[in-house]
């Protein structure tokens, strides 16, 4: 799909649809929405050539608030939808977005395989360590002793999942962390992620002020990682496994070629396929 002329310098607001978000006041996701529009404006992307796919959850409501093509799919399946779209339409800029429950619990298998498959797309997981839409249950990234859910009295007693480590082990080609408390910094990371070929994973800290009000302190805890992005998976592994979950920035940049089958016909006419059946 060719577009005649890329739009002349769009502003972040040009990427917004104008639909009012369902999010609670103070939700981190507002800033993520802002960061995404800033990143798109920075890259001067034509909105019609961008698609953002999401699953189910508070953060997965995002596509409706953007003026790009969007798909609000079922719970946990944003990555397969985005994969099918990008593989069959490599001309598009494809993003997937969602929360920690959507991406790491119900969609955990797709996360692992999307990292491994390395299709050229950017996956933003807004992590608030809680299921917000269903009113406050533990997610895979919740600490084991978090005791505020009726579903898991006394806490889950299960160690949290480390998405960046899993992403590296599974083969993601770009791994970064950003925070909704710093939308400009997050926008920079997103630009970096979208420009990097292959599967880019952005772990986006995005506090839930309703069910995890203590996360308001995150803005005091996050800080820029005092390191440059590494291309060495062994260095990245050590970095990610000793990480305290609050270092921001691009932490790993791989050089694996993206998965993209060539979509070029080698026969002039589909009746060529009949030949295999003729006796």
């Amino acid at each position: 799909m060719e577009t005649a002329n890329p739009c002349p310098s769009l502003k972040p607001k040009d990427y917004k649809s104008g639909t009012k978000p369902v999010w609670c006041p103070g939700c981190g996701d507002y800033s993520v929405l802002l960061a995404i529009t800033k990143a798109m404006a920075e890259m001067n992307l034509s909105p019609e050539n961008v698609a953002l796919v999401s699953g189910i959850g508070c953060s997965s409501r995002l596509p409706a608030y953007l003026n790009v093509y969007g798909f609000h799919a079922v719970h946990g399946r944003a990555l397969p939808v985005a994969t099918g779209l990008k593989v069959s339409r490599p001309d598009l800029t494809v993003l997937a977005a969602g929360g920690d429950g959507d991406g790491f619990s119900i969609g955990g298998n797709h996360f692992m395989h999307a990292c491994r498959r390395n299709v050229d797309m950017t996956y933003i997981v807004m992590d608030n360590q809680v299921y917000g839409m269903t009113k406050g249950q533990a997610s895979p990234t919740t600490d084991p002793d978090w005791d505020n859910s009726k579903l898991t009295p006394g806490g889950t007693k299960i160690n949290p999942y480390y998405p960046l480590v899993v992403a590296l082990a599974s083969g993601a080609n770009f791994i970064a962390r950003a925070s909704s408390t710093d939308p400009n910094g997050a926008a920079k990371v997103l630009v970096d992620a979208m420009r990097h070929p292959g599967f880019s994973f952005v772990h986006m800290l995005s506090p839930c002020v309703t069910f995890r009000p203590e996360q308001k302190d995150w803005k005091k805890m996050v800080r820029q990682a005092p390191v440059e992005p590494t291309t060495d998976p062994a260095v990245a592994a050590k970095r990610l496994m000793t990480d305290d979950n609050f270092f921001l920035g691009t932490l790993y940049k791989g050089d694996r070629p993206a998965y993209q089958p060539e979509l070029k016909a080698t026969v002039d006419n589909i009746s060529d396929l009949d030949k295999g059946f003729i006796l």
């Binding site: 399946r77 939808v81 797709h110 979509l263």
Partner: peptide, 23 residues
């Protein structure tokens, strides 16, 4: 000029179709 992707499971395959078709 088409492509077949071997998906990780049937949940992925049907959703990849939805993405492909949306495109």
């Amino acid at each position: 000029g088409g492509v077949l992707v071997q998906a990780e499971d049937e949940l992925a395959s049907i959703n990849q179709l939805i993405g492909g078709s949306f495109g």
